[in-house]
């Protein structure tokens, strides 16, 4: 205890449990009052954070590179949308259905995909998302084809909070779900299961040698990440009340991955920061000139990959390292 008091201030702060999370939550609450007319955009940011967290579980913890997480996101969106239209319009039940759909698709495809590595794996994840998009396009009778799934009307959240036009309920609802997913992932990544994933990330061969069922763990991680991506998709369907085949788009998978790497993989907070910065830059750059947005994102990706490979969360430590060397 006395030893930790002698540490410099940043390190001491880093040991306070949930300090960063509480700060982010406070910022999210402040945003609600600061930008009351951009709630739609802010809600989209929160939903993307859920999606990016699911990729962080795969990439940052289990070391599974994917460019097809949109498949599970889209499956969750369609499942939640169809469930709300045909069965029951309760939002929380919809989330469960979305999670189940994402997990089912991930489990099914994961049984095949998790046998592959490297380029083949990346290809297969893309292919699964493309197939889903084709099915959503072609199954017009069920999904509405390229016009999208319309007519989603949600009941109030918990029977108390009605969804409104400005998106106030949607914002708090998405924030609550994000917080719940974050806590869940924090528990999972610190459990024995999460530690075994980290081991697989570092050396699958050694994990096999000490008796870990590597393939099974990878499939389980893929299914869990699929469930979380499904929740993100279900949130989109419920808040925007529209689902189009674009939910399966490759650019969504790619941008989500870029956001994660921008923030830093392997730390849940990295994904959150990455999405926040990416979407802020996107919002400002695209507002100025939507066509040249690709210049900004391209340069941003190259800058991170070349100069800050650990992502932005690694910046303070790196800067301290530089200062230490300079002194």
């Amino acid at each position: 205890m006395t030893e930790s008091l002698t540490l410099p201030l940043p390190e001491r702060l880093a040991r306070v449990p949930f300090l960063a999370e509480a700060l982010l939550l406070a910022i999210a609450a402040a945003m609600f009052f600061l930008l009351p007319y951009s709630l739609g955009f802010l809600t989209r940011v929160l939903i993307l954070m859920v999606l990016v967290l699911s990729i962080d579980l795969l990439l940052g913890f289990a070391g599974i590179a994917t460019l097809g997480q949109a498949a599970m996101y889209g499956a969750g969106a369609y499942a939640a949308g169809l469930f709300a239209i045909h069965v029951w319009a309760d939002p929380l039940a919809g989330l469960v259905v979305g999670a189940a759909a994402g997990a089912a698709l991930a489990l099914l495809s994961g049984l095949v995909l998790m046998r592959a590595q490297g380029l083949t794996l990346i290809m297969l994840t893309i292919a699964v998302a493309q197939i889903c998009m084709e099915i959503a396009n072609k199954a017009r009778g069920v999904t509405g084809g390229s016009d999208g799934l319309r007519g989603i009307r949600m009941d109030p959240v918990l029977g108390l909070f009605e969804f409104d036009f400005i998106g106030q309920t949607g914002y708090w609802y998405a924030l609550a779900v994000l917080a719940a997913v974050f806590l869940l992932l924090r528990l999972v990544t610190r459990s024995a299961f999460g530690l075994s994933l980290r081991g697989i990330h570092d050396s699958p061969a050694r994990m096999t040698a000490i008796g870990t069922p590597v393939y099974g763990r990878r499939v389980a991680a893929y299914a869990l990440a699929g469930a979380i991506a499904g929740i993100a998709g279900a949130l989109t369907a419920q808040v925007t009340q529209l689902v189009s085949p674009e939910v399966f788009a490759f650019t969504l998978s790619a941008e989500a991955l870029i956001m994660l790497v921008l923030g830093g993989t392997g730390r849940l907070i990295g994904g959150i920061i990455g999405v926040a910065i990416f979407m802020t830059v996107h919002h400002t750059a695209a507002a100025h000139d939507p066509f040249n947005w690709l210049f900004v994102i391209g340069a941003m990706v190259l800058g991170v990959v070349f100069f800050v490979p650990g992502g932005l969360v690694s910046l303070p430590a790196r800067l301290r390292g530089l200062m230490g060397r300079a002194l």
């Binding site: 990439l59 790619a254 870029i258 210049f295 990706v301 190259l302």
Partner: peptide, 28 residues
């Protein structure tokens, strides 16, 4: 030349970045 030494994921990201720059340039 510098990308050759990267890991798989960094390669994917860096070349996606280059793709975006190519698209934006031709678009411009």
């Amino acid at each position: 030349r510098r990308i050759y030494g990267f890991g798989e994921l960094q390669q994917v990201l860096a070349t996606i970045g280059i793709t975006f720059l190519m698209i934006a340039t031709v678009n411009l």
